[in-house]
Write a protein that binds this DNA or RNA. Structure first.
Length: 880
DNA sequence: GGAACTACGT
């Protein structure tokens, strides 16, 4: 601002009194000229004394004087209110006018509408507008302009039709706004109406109107219309090019967009900053952030300086493509380049911090946004609330919430969600109540957030109550996400069956499940008992055409593998058009699970040939495949290449896999040496791998060492205590060890852990060791077990997880197999059993024998691994 | 009195 120098010898001008002594008449002694009350008020306005002018009006009205002012005076007063953004004075003025103006003047009323509209009081503008008897083009323009500023596009279109009904046509200034609304509502019909109107009324001369029409066609995805229109244009400017390029970009047709981008030059125009921005933003949205980055470099080399749009779209592109740290680096770079971020930029950067749960960086940007005066922005505030909630800093989130003056539904939802996530349902509920009293109504998301908050914190009743009430009390229609909240909530608290129940119910209510539903429900079926359920869900996925969604296909193939159906898993894999690292890892892990190590290794080769980089999960499967195939050296090589070639720090799971690798062929010494040289402290999974190895190779010394190490780490582990006692008994060569008896007495409740489940004809049956529910099975069991032991049973180190089988205490999996084969009306071809403990050697041999003599496949998942018995062999190669 | 093409959060 310039400094105004006031000469010191000059007296300040006389100050106008608020009201002349007699209404409307000015005392000649006070003023050089006689002026009317109208001009008195005008002068007050011009001098910036708007409040005095209003006070004068007030005073006059209080005296009861009937003053008739010129409409022009009111308009000037209102215009001053607009210029100085003085909404309170404007309201006062409005109230006075109601009493003072004898006749309704559409011009004054229009001014009122535009005052309210410009000050953001859409409601009041609408009230005045609705009360008007006569509206002119200005009136409609003011109202439509206000709605368009507030992005209330549907209202804009409604107003447009009303206006046409009144016989008033929009002019070339109003048309672009209405067309913008058409674009945002995808209202192609109205756009066509306007197009023909423009042609008929001769507005074709306005390039802005023409560009707007082009933009609507492009935005509505009517690219052929847009192209034809574009080609028919007599005159095109850069904006026209931008509009058509943007249309192709938004519909993902990047090739055509690029061709058009090149065509700009051919026409002799240079692509401008906006043109580049459109291309850059599109590549970002498509996840091709590197291409976008390259474009920015190219644009800079051509001398075009990236602006806040360029930077912001790159930052949000990186943030949304799991490259949040780079997004924040870009943010810094932008500041260094001297480009001032705006609310959208800050929002993107803060949301990157939120996903990173990086409180430090979030705080920095919070402080920065205060510095540059963006803290009151609702967008910035909302993202900060989200960031603080995700970082568990609810007090800070609350503080930001309290600071936001004009809260929107996101503001409320973010904080409510934050409290729910942190488990403070009471606090969330309090806010939920307050929100209902505020002028922001809870939307379906608010209700869903509350529901999932309650259910994840174990308050099922309250959640169901909200779920029932939302439609009636909340006047909010339930959506798929509402049902998903219930499904995910039950899963969160481990209630798989209830989650599946909700899934079924949702289908009976004809609610269409979506990707999220499938991704929640599928993993619940990742076991041998649920194979049929997986097929059921698979059908549902096909019906909803969700099989083309990569995450769904990945989850489906993974679940099939875990449910024991490798054939379907492979079919899905083969039919997938695009595959990512998760796809490959899932199928490879599936083959390892089923003991097909060669298939796993072959797929690993295919995967690396396709150019994908293996990650930790891939390597884990590969080491286990090598272990299964006895390829110790190859396995060791794979383990070394984790660090050497891929720069990944191996996890404990990788170390355990290497112990398994040495352990299988009985290279126990090397396994032990490997453990001793580990750079990290081995955990019980590493020792458990050694335990398995030493048990399988009947090395009592190593067995005891491994058991002792595990007991150090998990002193309360009953199973390990039992095995340890058995080992002592074995060393003492006494079958009747007192320690063992003491242990079993103390843990009487834990003893009957031998339990298994089997699914037959859509029903799951449970059996415990020595189960007497089907006594007629026993003769068959004893007969088969006898034959099986002759067939090839060799005693291992007799340390088993459950008590020895005696007469009348047959292990449950034998009973289950017998039930499936002879107890059930239809003989099963494929038997699927889940067992709580590790199978004993005898049951394992029996299962192998049965698979050969009965020609069936038997799948047993025990606490160690999946056993697939077929034709007398087991997928674990007798090492488990 | 005023306009077209570009970036965004649960």
């Amino acid at each position: 601002m310039e400094n105004v120098i006031i000469p010191c010898n000059l007296k300040p001008p006389p100050v106008l009194p608020i009201i002349p002594t007699k209404a409307g008449i000015i005392q000649p002694s006070e003023f050089s000229t006689t002026i009317s009350f109208d001009s008195h008020l005008d002068k007050l306005c011009r001098d910036g004394r708007l409040s005095d002018a209003v006070a004068a009006l007030d005073a006059i009205a209080e005296r009861g004087s009937k003053v008739k002012l010129k409409p022009r005076t009111y308009m000037n007063l209102l215009q001053s209110c607009i210029d100085t953004n003085s909404i309170e004075l404007g309201r006062k003025l409005h109230a006075r006018m109601m009493g003072l103006v004898q006749y309704v003047n559409p011009f004054v009323e229009t001014k009122l509408v535009s005052m309210y509209a410009k000050c953001g009081c859409l409601h009041d503008a609408r009230r005045v507008f609705d009360g008007m008897r006569e509206r002119n083009l200005f009136t409609w323009s003011a109202m439509i302009g206000a709605c368009s500023r507030e992005q209330r596009w549907k209202e804009v279109l409604k107003l447009f039709y009303l206006m046409m009904g009144d016989g008033i046509l929009p002019d070339k200034f109003l048309l672009p706004k209405i067309l913008e609304a058409c674009g945002n509502c995808a209202d192609f019909k109205t756009a066509k109406v306007i197009h023909s109107m423009v042609v008929r009324c001769g507005f074709c001369g306005s390039i802005r109107v023409i560009n707007s029409i082009l933009a609507v066609y492009a935005k509505c995805g009517k690219l052929n219309w847009a192209r034809r229109f574009f080609e028919s244009m007599d005159k095109r400017d850069l904006v026209s090019w931008n509009a058509i390029i943007s249309g192709f970009c938004q519909n993902g047709r990047m090739e055509e967009a690029t061709r058009l981008f090149d065509a700009v030059r051919e026409e002799g125009t240079e692509p401008g900053l906006v043109t580049w921005n459109i291309m850059i933003a599109s590549y970002n949205q498509l996840g091709q952030t590197d291409v976008a980055m390259g474009l920015m470099k190219k644009m800079e080399s051509l001398g075009i300086v990236p602006d806040v749009f360029t930077w912001t779209s790159l930052i949000s592109g990186f943030a949304q493509n799991n490259r949040r740290n780079q997004a924040l680096d870009l943010f810094k770079e932008m500041l260094l380049a001297g480009v001032k971020p705006n609310a959208v930029t800050i929002t993107s950067a803060v949301s990157a911090c939120a996903s990173l749960k990086s409180l430090g960086k979030g705080l920095e940007i919070h402080a920065f946004s205060i510095k540059i005066g963006l803290i009151e922005d609702v967008l910035v505030g909302n993202s900060l609330i989200d960031m603080y909630s995700k970082c568990g800093e609810l007090e800070a989130a609350q503080e930001v919430f309290d600071m936001i003056i004009e809260k929107d539904v996101f503001t409320w939802n973010s904080l409510i969600g934050g409290y729910c996530q942190a488990g403070y349902c009471g606090k969330a509920c309090e806010l939920f109540m307050k929100m209902q009293e505020s002028d922001v109504a809870p939307n379906v998301i608010t209700w869903n957030v509350m529901i999932s908050g309650y259910i994840q914190n174990g308050d099922e009743d309250e959640a169901m109550d909200l779920f029932r009430r939302m439609e009636k009390d909340g006047k909010v229609k339930r959506n798929t996400a509402s049902w998903n909240s219930l499904v995910a909530g039950y899963l969160h608290v481990g209630e798989k069956d209830k989650a599946l129940g909700i899934f079924r119910q949702m289908q009976s209510y004809c609610v269409i499940p979506n990707l999220v539903t499938m991704l929640s429900v599928l993993p619940t079926c990742a076991n041998l008992l649920a194979e049929k359920k997986v097929r059921e869900i698979h059908c549902c996925i096909l019906r909803r055409v969700l099989d083309s969604e990569l995450p769904v296909a990945n989850s489906l193939l993974d679940t099939y593998a875990k449910a024991g159906n490798m054939t379907y898993s492979r079919t899905i894999f083969d039919r997938m058009l695009s595959k990512d690292i998760i796809t490959w890892n899932s199928i490879i892990a599936g083959y390892v699970l089923h003991g097909f190590s060669n298939a796993a290794l072959d797929l690993f080769d295919d995967m690396t040939k396709s150019g994908l980089k293996p990650n930790r999960g891939t390597f884990l499967s590969i080491i286990y495949s090598c272990s299964l195939s006895g390829l110790v050296d190859k396995g060791r090589l794979a383990f070394s290449s984790i660090t050497e070639d891929y720069n990944i720090v191996p996890g404990l799971e990788h170390y355990a896999a290497v112990v398994d690798l040495y352990g299988r062929p009985g290279r126990l010494g090397e396994a032990m040496e490997f453990i001793e040289n580990m750079p990290v402290e081995p955990d019980s999974s590493v020792w458990a791998a050694l335990l398995t190895a030493s048990r399988n190779h009947r090395n009592i010394g190593f067995t005891v060492r491994a058991l002792d190490k595990i007991l150090d780490l998990e002193p309360g582990n009953y199973l390990i205590q039992r095995l340890r006692a058995q080992a002592d008994a074995l060393v003492a060569k006494s079958e009747n060890d007192p320690k063992m008896r003491k242990l079993e007495k103390e843990n009487a409740t834990k003893r009957h852990l031998g339990r298994c489940w089997i699914e037959l004809q859509n029903r799951v049956y449970t059996f415990v060791n020595g189960d007497q529910s089907e006594p007629y099975l026993y003769p068959w069991i004893h007969d088969i077990a006898g034959k099986a032991s002759k067939y090839g049973f060799h005693e291992g180190l007799c340390i088993e997880e459950e008590e020895k089988e005696e007469v009348g205490r047959v292990h449950c999996e034998k009973i289950a197999i017998a039930f499936a084969l002879i107890g059930f009306p239809r003989k099963a071809q494929c038997i699927r059993i889940v067992k709580s403990l590790r199978m004993c050697g005898n049951c394992h041999e029996t299962a192998k024998y049965i698979s050969k003599t009965y020609g069936c496949e038997i799948y047993v998942t025990d606490s160690k691994c999946l056993h697939r018995f077929s034709n007398g062999h087991c997928s674990c190669k007798d090492y488990w």
